[in-house]
């Protein structure tokens, strides 16, 4: 099972691009997709059943859609929970964590409001295509790797 997790708040404009991409993907019996406002510890129950996981998230400093591995840099556990911390929790609580990737999509407007900015909207097709390719390929290389 491959799992796609779109991260973001739909009420903060371009922050909602992760959920938008996750919901646009065509799911199948071997693919599961979900949208979350933020990562929470309970998500390890979904990671436990996944072979691979793709986090889709807005990138305030990004200029292009980029795919990369979630790097194991040791957990920085604080007020917020990132993909690295979630994977580490899965590994410690359940003994293993799936092969994990992150798809970063540029965002420009993170103010209050619904809907993406025109500039962010322009990156959605490319992000969906990149995520679909990740799903269809067993072996993936990170962008720029």
């Amino acid at each position: 099972m491959d799992l796609v997790i779109g991260i973001g708040n739909l009420l903060r404009r371009d922050d909602g691009i992760g959920p938008r991409v996750a919901e646009a993907l065509r799911v199948s019996p071997s693919v599961s997709a979900c949208a979350v406002c933020e990562l929470v510890p309970e998500l390890v129950l979904r990671l436990r059943d996944a072979r691979r996981v793709l986090f889709v998230d807005a990138d305030a400093r990004g200029t292009d859609v980029r795919l990369g591995r979630v790097r194991d840099e040791g957990s920085r556990w604080g007020h917020t929970l990132g993909p690295e911390g979630l994977l580490e929790l899965a590994a410690r609580a359940f003994g293993s964590a799936p092969d994990a990737w992150v798809l970063s999509v540029p965002g420009f407007d993170f103010g209050y409001g619904e809907g993406l900015s025109d500039r962010a909207e322009g990156f959605v097709p490319q992000a969906v295509e990149r995520a679909s390719r990740w799903l269809s390929e067993g072996q993936v290389s990170a962008d720029g790797a």
Binding site: P41, E42, L45, W77, G85, E88, L89, R92, A93
Partner: peptide
């Protein structure tokens, strides 16, 4: 909770499942 998972794995798993 990460440290708790390391020291008390079973308690952490149960807590996560209960909240879920």
């Amino acid at each position: 909770v990460l440290g708790l998972a390391e020291a008390r794995g079973d308690l952490t798993r149960k807590g996560i499942r209960l909240r879920a």
